[in-house]
Computed example of a mutant assay.
Amino acid sequence: MRLHLIALMLTCHLGLIAIAHGQTLRRVQIAENGQDFVLAGTDQDFFVWGVNYDHDGDSRLIEDYWDAEWSTVEEDFAEIKSLGANVVRVHLQLGKFMSTADQPNEANLLKLVQLVKLAERSGLYLNLTGLGCYHKADIPAWYDELPLEQRWQVQANFWKAIAHACRDQLAVFCYDLMNEPVVSGGGPSDEWLVGDSLGGKYFVQRIARAGDLKGRSNQEIAAAWGQKLTEAIRSEDSQTLITVGVIPWAHVWPNAKPLFYSEPVSKHLDFASVHFYPVAGEVDKAITALKVYDIGKPLVIEEFFPLKCSLEEAKDFIDKARPVSDGLTSFYWGKTIEENQSSGEISGAIVAKWLKIYRELASGQTP
Rank of each mutant, 00 (worst) to 15 (best):
R2P: 04
L3H: 10
H13Q: 13
L14P: 01
L16F: 02
L16M: 14
I17C: 12
I17S: 10
A18K: 10
H21D: 07
G22S: 10
Q23I: 00
Q23V: 01
L25C: 06
R26K: 15
R27F: 03
Q29A: 06
E32G: 05
F37A: 11
G41V: 04
D45L: 14
F46G: 00
F47H: 03
F47L: 15
W49P: 00
W49N: 13
G50L: 10
D54V: 08
G57H: 15
S59I: 06
I62A: 12
D67H: 14
E74C: 13
E75L: 11
A78H: 07
S82C: 02
V88D: 01
V88Y: 00
Q103R: 11
E120T: 09
L124F: 04
N127S: 15
L128K: 01
T129C: 15
G130P: 05
L131G: 02
D138P: 02
I139F: 04
A141F: 03
P147M: 03
Q155S: 07
N157A: 01
H164L: 11
C166E: 00
R167A: 11
Q169R: 01
A171D: 02
A171K: 01
L177I: 15
N179D: 13
P181W: 04
G185Y: 13
P188L: 02
P188K: 08
Y202R: 10
Y202P: 04
V204Q: 08
I207Y: 00
A208P: 09
Q219S: 13
G226F: 02
K228E: 10
I233S: 02
E236I: 00
E236Y: 02
Q239E: 11
H251Y: 14
N255I: 06
N255R: 13
L259M: 07
V274Q: 06
G281N: 04
A289Q: 09
K291S: 12
D294R: 14
D294G: 07
I295L: 09
F305T: 14
L307I: 13
E312H: 12
E313P: 03
F317H: 03
R322S: 07
P323K: 09
L328A: 01
S330A: 12
F331K: 03
F331P: 05
K335C: 08
K335L: 14
T336F: 09
T336C: 08
E339M: 11
Q341A: 12
S342E: 12
S347V: 15
A349I: 11
V351Y: 08
A352V: 07
K356P: 07
R359D: 04
R359L: 05
G364V: 06
P367G: 12
